[in-house]
Amino acid sequence: MNHKVKVAIIGPGNIGTDLMFKVMRNSKHLEMGAMVGVDPTSDGLARAARLGVATTADGIEGLLKLEVFKDIDIVFDATSAGAHKAHNEVLQAHSVQVIDLTPAAIGPYVIPAINLEAENATNMNMVTCGGQATIPMVAAVSRVAKVHYAEIVASISSKSAGPGTRANIDEFTETTRSAIEKLGGASRGKAIIILNPAEPPLIMRDTVFVLSEIAEREAIEASIAKMVLDVQAYVPGYRLKQKVQFDTIPADQPINVPGLGLMHGLKTSVFLEVEGAAHYLPSYAGNLDIMTSAAMTCGDMMARRRIASGIARGKETV
Rank of each mutant, 00 (worst) to 15 (best):
G276D: 11
S293I: 06
F172T: 14
K28L: 14
P250L: 05
A179Y: 11
V141H: 11
Y109I: 13
I249T: 12
T17R: 01
A133R: 03
Q132W: 04
I10F: 03
I72C: 04
V38H: 07
N125M: 11
Y284T: 02
V138R: 11
T317L: 04
G11C: 02
D100L: 10
F209A: 10
M302L: 11
P201D: 05
E275P: 03
T79C: 07
F172L: 14
E31G: 02
V23N: 00
A113Q: 11
P136L: 09
N26H: 05
V274Q: 08
A34M: 03
T317R: 09
S283Y: 07
D289P: 01
D170M: 06
L229I: 06
D300R: 01
T317W: 00
S142I: 07
N2F: 08
K267V: 14
F69N: 01
V36T: 04
T128D: 11
Y280V: 10
A145I: 11
L66F: 02
N256I: 15
N196T: 06
T102S: 13
T128E: 10
V270T: 07
R25L: 07
I152W: 00
S212E: 13
M137T: 12
G131A: 12
M263V: 15
A219R: 15
A93G: 13
V98P: 10
V257K: 02
V210F: 07
F69V: 05
K159I: 09
G16V: 09
I193E: 12
I156K: 02
I290E: 05
K159L: 14
K190W: 07
A49D: 10
G299E: 08
R205V: 13
G185K: 07
T128G: 08
F246L: 09
E273T: 14
D77C: 12
S142R: 15
D247I: 11
P197V: 04
A54R: 03
Y280P: 05
L183H: 08
T17C: 00
A251C: 09
P254W: 06
Q253C: 10
G261Q: 09
V98H: 01
V127R: 02
G310T: 10
P40E: 05
V210R: 07
H29Q: 10
V153L: 10
T128S: 14
K226L: 02
N125S: 15
M35P: 02
T175I: 06
D43S: 06
I106Q: 13
M291S: 11
E216H: 08
V5W: 00
N14P: 09
R306T: 08
Q245H: 13
E218M: 06
F76D: 01
S27V: 12
T134I: 10
